[in-house]
Nucleic acid binder design. Structure first.
Lengths: 294, 294
DNA sequence: GTTCCGCATGAATCGATAG
DNA sequence: ACTATCGATTCATGCGGAA
């Protein structure tokens, strides 16, 4: 039993400079718990990846997803953040073709989460509104994958809050008394009943005030999926690391991480922000529960 | 100049009993401004619609969308409300295949709106969260289509919404008094400056406690798209009428409407709720602006 | 006349049981 | 083995009755 004993854990972050199509071959089979990535969208980041044309996107990505399928654990998950561009007035179909292609490759297309961007970039076009959402495609190797739903529970809606107001007032009084009579347990029971599971729509604002560089997504986005699909000490991989948002999120959550980046500029930037090895002493009940659940 | 003059308009609602695959052939080429519909999803509503299998869905729908392509005006829009269900742990791919099929048929896939359902169906599963969104696929015949963005503008933020509530209460009182002091104009001026264009994410709750029948979507959903893509006097078509939500929305917004329904039960229910012909006298400024914009 | 509370009800999904 | 049906799970909403 580990409760009230200390447990040391070493968390590593590995950075790799190069094209993930090649560098992924270094990684061992079945060694990654979560792949979270946002690859360059078609026709964007032309300077780095040569601007993949929409009609060539699937052909370009399939060899990479083949490697990801190899390195992912059978219980692991691949979350792909992607959104098709508007080309000549139409939404491109390469994302749909990619899903169909990856299914032929052996992936299961388990779910499609929606990231609702609350404060997306303003703009006005005569025949189109602002694009305020992106796809977060969940792929798996098998139908049995790890998912830790309790870690991302959210407070109940306004409806319940107003109706349970009476209960909560009573509860506050007892909490203030702090008489150690076991009311703490009651409080947490009450809290449990006021937390509900989220849906497959994730509401997050985009980060608009970055110091040096612009990240494709806010840190909270990978954090949500890292908490949902991994435990402390697990391995998170981002083959299109960019400014390193996924790795920073993984490190803050005490997960091992591997990042691959083709641009030396980004690589060095992340290198200067990430500690390659961190040591932690776990001794709280939360960690005990996390470890024993595994 | 039409201001302060009266303009009469006759709004018709036409109900057709039968299979839309056949009945659509009656409609004239290029005669519809907006198709808004929510066909039975694959394997759902078995008791009413027989439950089309996912693998047969595209084959079943393509002849219908062919007719819709024929009857739609070149400047018109087709909005398709649909969502794939989970089959054996995976999301079905028939919606993506349908989009690809309709593009081959000649449709332009212009945009995908997200309907975020605030009160989605409850449930808890080990590997999945509740599904809280549906697709609203926008298809067009040509890149030049009518869109009236100003009609769906929203208050800028929460602060604006709360202030708007107070104003609108005041406004109601004044409206009831009918004193013609021009206060309404002031309100609309103030609103204009505090209204912004919406995004492609629509937030609406489903209507779940209907007395007689259940509608697939809240009336506000077709209303939003009817206002966005048509003007008063235009023609709205719903080939899968169901309980008639689209037609009721169209009638309330003074649009002509055509509804096709295969089930006599639903047909008669809508027949009893919808007036076949309504006459309106337009004389307020709002209508003046709408007409002159045309 | 308000506000408050109880209750039924959904385009769902999984896993077990039965043919 | 493969399909068909059933029970359990879960939460925002609006209606109606009560304080």
């Amino acid at each position: 039993m580990l409760y009230n004993h200390g447990v040391y854990m070493e968390i590593k972050a590995e950075l790799i400079l190069g094209d993930c199509k090649d560098k992924l071959k270094r990684l061992e089979d079945n060694s990654v718990d979560l792949v979270f990535t946002s690859p360059p969208y078609a026709d964007s980041r032309k300077n780095t990846y040569g601007g993949i044309k929409p009609e060539e996107y699937v052909e370009w990505f399939i060899p990479i997803s083949e490697q990801l399928l190899r390195v992912l654990k059978p219980t692991g998950t691949f979350v792909l953040n992607i959104k098709e561009k508007v080309v000549d007035g139409e939404r491109s179909t390469y994302v749909m073709e990619l899903i169909l292609g990856m299914r032929r490759q052996g992936w299961l297309w388990t779910e499609e989460f929606i990231w609702h961007k609350k404060n997306c970039y303003p703009g006005k076009w005569p025949n189109r509104f602002r694009d305020a959402w992106e796809r977060l495609l969940q792929f798996n190797k098998s139908k049995k994958f790890d998912m830790y739903q309790e870690t991302v529970m959210v407070p109940m809606g306004d409806w319940a809050r107003s109706r349970l107001r009476n209960l909560s007032e009573t509860d506050k009084i007892r909490d203030n008394a702090r008489n150690g009579s076991g009311f703490g347990k009651n409080v947490s029971n009450w809290l449990d009943k006021n937390m509900v599971y989220p849906t497959n729509v994730v509401h997050l604002a985009t980060e608009c005030s970055n110091k040096n560089h612009s990240a494709a997504f806010p840190k909270e986005l990978p954090k949500w999926f890292i908490k949902l699909f991994t435990q402390e000490g697990d391995v998170v991989l981002d083959p299109f690391m960019g400014s390193g948002t996924t790795l920073i999120a993984a490190q803050e959550l005490k997960r091992n991480s591997i990042g691959i980046e083709i641009l030396p500029e980004y690589y060095r930037m992340v290198e200067s922000e990430i500690k390659p090895v961190s040591c932690y002493l776990f001794e709280d009940q939360g960690s005990y529960e996390t470890l024993s659940a595994k």
